[in-house]
């Protein structure tokens, strides 16, 4: 039997992806992997991100990372690519499938998504940066001219 190889696929989807579409994406990927006698290790949602440049007129996107293993010498990668680019082309904007190095650890680091980033209100922001004027709350509105 051929040795198992570990792969990972990073998917960039449209920002307005629904829960049903995520489920459909996961099950269809799982189906194609299982037809090639492979198995999915993980499927995780990274979250919403601001993209470095616009893709299909979208400023934002949602990333998903899935890891799977399959025997080598298989046509699995081509089948997954056709699935993503033909059947799921309305949802998936970009994809990157890569072979994992068995010597490297499975842990990885990723940038912080918009959902994880700390939110700061305008009042706190103006107080921290000692701002006054339009956003300032209180009586000290020296910059405003009264007519």
């Amino acid at each position: 039997m051929a040795a198992l190889r570990q792969y990972e696929a990073l998917l960039l989807t449209v920002p307005e992806i629904t829960g049903d579409e995520i489920k459909h994406l996961e099950t269809s990927l799982d189906k194609t992997i299982k037809t090639h006698t492979g198995s999915t290790i993980s499927f995780e949602r990274w979250g919403k991100y601001k993209l470095a440049y616009d893709i299909n007129k979208n400023d934002y996107g949602v990333f998903f990372l899935t890891r799977f293993e399959a025997p080598e010498g298989n046509n699995i990668i081509n089948d997954i690519k056709t699935l993503l680019k033909v059947k799921l082309h309305t949802v998936v904007m970009r994809d990157m499938i890569s072979l994992l190095n068995p010597k490297h650890p499975l842990t990885y680091q990723r940038p912080r998504s918009l959902e994880e980033a700390p939110t700061r209100e305008t009042e706190n922001f103006s107080r921290d940066n000692k701002m006054s004027g339009f956003f300032a709350s209180g009586d000290d509105k020296d910059g405003m001219d009264e007519e």
Partner: peptide
């Protein structure tokens, strides 16, 4: 270059 394709880094 791989990261640029996924729009994580700018061109």
């Amino acid at each position: 270059r791989k990261s640029r394709v996924m729009a994580l880094l700018p061109y």
